[in-house]
Design a protein around this nucleic acid. Sequence first.
DNA 1: TTCTGGACGCCA
DNA 2: GGCGTCCAGAAG
Length: 672
Amino acid sequence: MTTPTPTSAARAAANRRRAPRPPGEPAAVLPVARIAVDLPLAHLDRPFDYMVPASLDSVAVPGCRVRVRFAGQLVDGYLLERSESSEHVGKLSPLAKVVSDQSVLSPEVARLARAVADRYGGTLADVLRLAVPPRHAAVEKEPTSPRDAAAEQPGSPPLQPWSSYPTGPSFVEGLVAARPVRAVWAALPGDGWVDAIAAAAAAARSAGRGALIVVPDQRDVDRVAAGLQRSLGAAGYVALTAEVGPRERYRRWLAVRRGDVRVVVGTRAAMFAPVVDLGLAVVWDDGDDLHAEPHAPYPHVREVVALRSLLDGAALLVGGHAVTAEGAALVERGFAQPIAARRTIVRAAAPRVRAIDDAVGATDDPSARAARLPSVAWQTARDALQSGPVLIQVPRRGYVPAVGCARCHARALCTTCHGPLGLAGSAAAPTCRWCGRVDTTWSCAECGFDRLRARVIGARRTADELGRAFASTPVVTSGAGDVKAFVSARPALVVATPGAEPVAEGGYCAALLLDAWALLGRHDLRAGEEAVRRWLNAAALVRPADAGGRVVVVADAAPRAVQAVVRWDPVGFAQRELQERVEAHLPPAVRLAVLTGSAGAVDDVVARAALPAAVEVLGPTAEADGSVRAIVRGPLSSASSFVSALRRAQGERSARKEAEHVRLQIDPVMLA
DNA sequence: TTCTGGACGCCA
DNA sequence: GGCGTCCAGAAG
């Protein structure tokens, strides 16, 4: 019998027609696999049951990555659990493939991811994409090297860093006793917070449990890692950050998942790190907007670790030099205890802070005027430079991005198109940054004054000017793209943008916080809170007043925010900020859902959600890009129900294959 | 992308 | 009434 040689096209057609290979017998025990499929459709955000063939029985472990045939297509997914039976009426498809028998999704993280998806009106698949890093097959095959077992077991963790706070020792005792203690912590100025966090992690570890510490950026990871090194030894912790590259990061992540390392410090993405038996979750500087995840469903580190502490029975520590309104709310509703030092201790640790109005000073001293420094700031810097480094905090890097009225500081806008005016160079005429017109006839729309001044002076220009004003003093700059972690104790001017301030050996002798009103002038509801946070973080790097530490805030606006820094009272400021949010019906006093999309689509979601009476809809308002934005606002008591109603409405739209996407954001940090 | 079930049409 | 075909909707 001869077989005609088929053409390749014919063979392909035959393959397509060929009946699927018989799946084989189901596994003898737990033959059903509950699978979370990785699909972006909201109405498919639920587990689907598949049959586990006997051939895959040993590798189809809970938490492993699988491929399944879903509506004809192969899709990725996670095996959530094995089960004896299925609710599904009808035949189950077999698992197509077990990608790897490494369990990457722990039951705890799966449960957390579901809770985060519900809290933020998103899908499990979206959260899992944030929680589980992409696979590196070679790394999975490497032999494991248990590290924590070899780590020196800490004796009794040092209470010392916490003894400055009245409620500190009892918090640490709670950790040692594996109790789910929760605290909002106003850290003393200085760098003692690093060892305090390291001690807290050691306390959790001494109870046999793990710890997770999430900080805003790499430099803070390095600082905390150094502290953990001191309290737990090099083998006792691991740093999870993007800096080490995806391969090493996956290696470390797997070590955490396997329980080889029990303490993790990392940036935002580490909030989902699968720490085994989590005993403590920490977020440092929770007001930093780096803690807001920019990918759907836009979860915030503070909320995620708070959820984790609840679900895992872990302790929670929300700390910073500043306190957010959200932190104050956790205390007010009794969810967390406050940890703050007494006023005498705070005063002893803090530098002396003065606020001066920059309209007053810059007259007499010509060098000071050249550097745009009010004379008090100038003198403070000059005196401090006798003994050590001086920090100058400026709002932004770069060259004079915008100009304003020299008298009232109102933004200078183009007379033709109302775009912002800018100065391209030191000698250039003001030019519109939108339409490019050179505007020589400007006068202030607010007060009629006709002279301009730089509204925000960049770090580079400030550095230039200071270098000229303080000739013979070295000038160091630190900002976006070139961030320095440390400076020595030698006298130097250190010009930095907020968040990029280097730590000075022994502390700065002084700090000047320049153009403070530019921070306060942000078109943002959190401008005050953000200004206080940035000032306190900079001032915390300065020596105590007794050691000569001085801070000058050059600010002529928002006395409440300035006073909070002068009095070093982050808790009082946060409480008043929270009170204002209550009165203004803003988070965290209420829950907001922001819907963005085409007018029709946004209306559709709002209509389908059939929102309860206690929930109000603001807008929709037209956005610059042609989309619209609606804000749905409701009391916390109905938050989960109205968020899930909005999510269901999203699901109905995805089931109907509506092309127009509506973005749903819950309590976004940036709300202009 | 594949499957299924209901609607519909054609024939006996 | 029975059977085949087509299409929409769902998707294990």
